[in-house]
Nucleic acid binder design. Structure first.
Lengths: 327, 327
DNA sequence: GAAGTATTTGTAATCGATTACATTGTATGT
DNA sequence: ACATACAATGTAATCGATTACAAATACTTC
């Protein structure tokens, strides 16, 4: 391993000067600057990050804790985040909390131990409910999940509005009995539930709601159970997330129900498969790349300006009408 | 921040003793051990990882560099890897090389700088071709992609056999003109191509092959172009990966071709959507969870025993026959 | 109980950078 | 020509742990 002292010797300067060149702090003459950089290149020197971190207390690593890495929503968001980080030469420590508050706790502790510059997190409901900014020693940006009462930097969809518009669309298609399958474990799920309920209330209709675990398997089973228990099938089934939507489509298929003839189906997240099934599926699409990019930019801004006011950035969903809700 | 010296003072011992308790090296009496642990808990002490790393030169961070985080194959593999890492209290630094040798290089350099304990990598073709074990300062396990001539720890599918069996299945369905769309940029794609070709050769048939970029969009376009250029549609189209398969299905749909009536379709990777389209899709499934778990275990074994012989672990794919290749 | 060994604990060096402070050299204004 | 300010560089302290080595204590064995 070549150390900074090797570079200093090679360039005929002190270690302090080498460090100044590398860090970009302090003043160095252009001549020595070039000499040092030449030596760095000649010796293929790479600073020891642990040493640098220990002394300076700074890191250029960001943390990203998502709820489910297999959920395409999160992979697309992470992808966008990582692209920005890559462009800036920063690292991203990606972890998967699996909707488990214990894992989430573990990873947050790990972020503290790693001394990351900041963290982007899609919090469990449990964390969100007891959220206090002062519990975190690093800048934190919430993504996907945040409510109005939580004082934090956040990037979220306008869930209530999005669910309301999606539901209104189904009402326009003359659906009356609309069953809403939602992930009860997340803030997102309950906000979308509220939007759905608001739309039904406008129309003077009563709600049919079914909380599920936010997985495809659980959603499929919940639909099955529902269909078996009730004689009358609903006019429409709606999912509060892409994974749940997939479960609903699987479940309909399993029960031999065709859409849109027997029952209309729609849900959140414009996942790739929604375009290729026949008929294709009406969805409320989220701007995942935008959400990711905005989240990391918000985080970097916060790191640069720790004092600035908290910002909650609310994005609008896009309704994409397809065959599954054809008139 | 509480430091190790605070803990030492609180417990009435020296910092060395505290360190020994925490690291688990050296001998400490049970009594002091408990006293130290009590102090650690009382003060909520967490060791500074940078300092620990600097002094010991060791890390319990692993690196994982995948080719495309949006590919469900890789998310499932990462998921399995991370589960094992979590169970052992290790961190995983996940990066997305995007099939780009430059990014791959960048992230490999970063892994070196981070001083990770080891890395799991799905290499680009370019890296694989010039692979030399001595170029890496850390233990490395290849996943998904490796060839017989590369001397490295690796976990891969038996690609030739898998593609051959998938192709034979189509031959049994009386397909004669079988078009193979494969990712030319990866070792996996060309190995699967070889398997396909072997099966056709057995049957005395000529191959129809189409290299594509390993993305859904590119596959869809390639299929379109192919269909427009050739009067006669093939009996079957086969994809060398799940993302390509999705593109083929989209393309068929776009051209109004039904399967299995007009053309049979099949491919690699049992992705969730393959079960819900109608008809559902015949696939060669990969044991992704097994692959991930095996890869990290192989890596940990290598870290523990740096001297042991290189192992290439070859997994068998599972043919799942579904409606898209119905007789 | 003495000698020898094993166990437990402490002292201080060390990892490789950053950075406060001191020092030297150079330019500027009067 | 002298004082002042500022730029460029070097010396050495420092970050917070681990660990080599030394010292103290406990435990055997005869």
């Amino acid at each position: 391993m070549t150390r900074i002292s090797d570079v200093a010797k090679h360039a005929g300067v002190s270690v302090a000067t080498v460090s100044r060149v590398l860090v970009g702090q302090g003043s160095v003459s252009e001549a020595t600057r070039e000499r040092v950089l030449a030596s760095v290149k000649a010796l293929d020197y790479h600073p020891d990050l642990a040493a640098r971190r220990l002394r300076s207390g700074k890191t250029d690593t960001l943390g990203l804790i998502v709820s489910d890495i297999r959920n395409p929503y999160f992979t697309e968001v992470s992808r966008a985040i990582e692209d920005v980080a890559y462009a800036r030469g920063m690292r991203v420590l990606l972890c998967n909390a699996d909707e488990d508050p214990a894992k989430e706790r573990f990873y947050l502790d790990m972020m503290r131990d790693e001394n990351v510059a900041g963290v982007i997190l899609s919090p469990t409901l449990s964390l969100l409910n007891q959220y206090r900014a002062e519990d975190f020693s690093f800048p934190l940006v919430l993504v996907d999940r945040c409510d109005a009462k939580t004082e934090a930097d956040a990037v979220v969809l306008d869930n209530i509005d999005a669910a309301q518009r999606l539901t209104r669309h189904l009402l326009e298609r003359n659906c009356r009995r609309i069953a809403f399958f939602y992930g009860a474990a997340s803030a997102t799920g309950s906000q979308r539930l509220a939007g759905y309920q608001a739309a039904l209330a406008e129309a003077g209709l009563s709600a049919i709601t079914q909380p599920v675990k936010p997985t495809t398997d659980d959603a499929r089973q919940a639909l099955s159970t529902y269909l078996e228990r009730h004689r009358q099938t609903p006019d429409a089934v709606v999912a509060s997330s892409g994974l749940i939507l997939l479960g609903l489509v699987e479940g309909l298929r399993q029960h031999g129900l065709r859409y849109p003839q027997d029952v209309i189906v729609a849900g959140f997240d414009d996942m790739p498969w929604t375009r290729i099934v026949t008929p294709d599926i009406t969805v409320m699409a989220q701007p995942t790349a935008d959400i990711g990019r905005t989240a990391i930019e918000l985080l970097l801004a916060r790191i640069a300006q720790p004092g600035q006011a908290m910002r909650r950035i609310v994005m609008r969903g896009e309704l994409i009408v397809r065959g599954s809700s054809a008139a």
